[in-house]
Amino acid sequence: MLKKIPKENMGTSNLGWLESRFHFSFAQYYNPSNMNFGVLRVLNDDIIHPHSGFDTHPHDNMEIISYVVKGSITHKDSMGNEETLNRGEVQYLSAGDGIFHSEHNLQDEDLRLLQIWIIPPKRNLEKLYGSYRYKKKHRTNKLLNIVSSKKQNSKVNVYQDINVFVSELNENKTIEYKIEKNRQVYFVQIEGSCQINEIILNEGDALEITKNNNLSITALENSHFLFIEMKEE
């Protein structure tokens, strides 16, 4: 089954320095019927304006993935990590029993990123932090597995049994993807537009995919997308 979620149906927030689109109930957008999709708890499409950001704040018992769409993000945390990442690069942490971190846009242009929160398989797991600087060539006209579980082969590994894929697909190109039995997918159209089987997505739209084995993804124009594959619930 394919269920389209138009961007117009998502929650939004504008704090001046931060503009957000919430795929699931979060912050000012409270929707008890839209709390998660499987182990995917949060997916926020954030625009952080220049010289602003999230000051130091805590997290615990959540696996957090940041995917940079535009601009640069600078991260600092209580484990001593500090770095700046750019378009297509990935930062992640497993917060375990507690971590403090900050995320800022120190540049003169807007920062756009996807913030993805995954529910871990157990509480109070050992804290993790890392990043990977993927190149555009790694995701152009192919699926790039940017995040996987620690049992898989991605450059970025989290505890939960998930796979995160991205692609920048040129107009009229098609990619096929097989969903294994008892697995499901949450698909996000980041930029451009594409057709997934019979469903057309435009920038900002999303798609819940359950009880479906094969996806045919065709770019209707130059298309940038991300999807998260996980156990079916």
Results as ranks from 00 to 15, higher is better:
L2Y: 04
K3Y: 07
K4W: 03
K4Q: 11
I5P: 08
K7H: 13
K7Y: 12
K7E: 13
N9S: 15
M10W: 01
M10D: 07
M10S: 12
G11C: 13
S13K: 11
G16A: 11
L18W: 14
E19Y: 09
F24D: 12
N31M: 11
P32Q: 12
S33F: 12
N34I: 10
M35N: 13
F37W: 05
G38E: 14
G38M: 14
N44E: 10
N44G: 07
D45T: 06
D46I: 13
D46Q: 09
I47M: 15
H49T: 15
H49K: 15
P50M: 14
S52R: 02
F54D: 11
D55F: 09
T56Q: 12
P58Q: 11
I64C: 12
I64Y: 07
S66Y: 05
S66Q: 08
Y67D: 01
V68F: 02
V68Y: 00
V69T: 11
K70L: 15
G71Q: 04
I73F: 14
K76I: 09
K76Y: 05
M79E: 11
N81L: 04
N81G: 07
E82I: 03
T84D: 03
G88H: 01
G88D: 08
V90N: 00
V90K: 00
V90G: 01
Q91V: 10
S94C: 14
D97M: 04
G98H: 03
G98A: 08
I99H: 01
F100H: 10
E103A: 11
H104R: 14
N105A: 15
E109K: 03
D110L: 13
R112K: 15
L113S: 02
I116C: 12
I118W: 03
I119D: 10
I119Y: 09
I119N: 10
P121C: 08
K122H: 10
R123M: 11
L125W: 04
E126Y: 02
K127R: 14
Y129D: 04
G130W: 03
S131I: 02
Y132D: 04
K135A: 08
K136G: 00
N141G: 02
V147D: 00
K151V: 05
K151S: 12
V156G: 02
Y159W: 10
D161L: 07
V164N: 02
F165H: 01
S167H: 02
L169C: 06
N170C: 05
N172F: 09
N172Y: 08
E176V: 06
Y177M: 10
I179L: 15
K181M: 06
N182S: 13
V185S: 01
V185A: 06
Y186S: 05
F187G: 06
F187C: 07
V188M: 12
E191F: 07
G192E: 08
C194F: 05
I196W: 04
I196S: 06
N197Y: 06
N197P: 11
I200S: 09
N202I: 09
K211G: 10
N214V: 06
L220G: 04
F225S: 05
L226R: 00
E229F: 01
E232P: 00
E233Y: 10
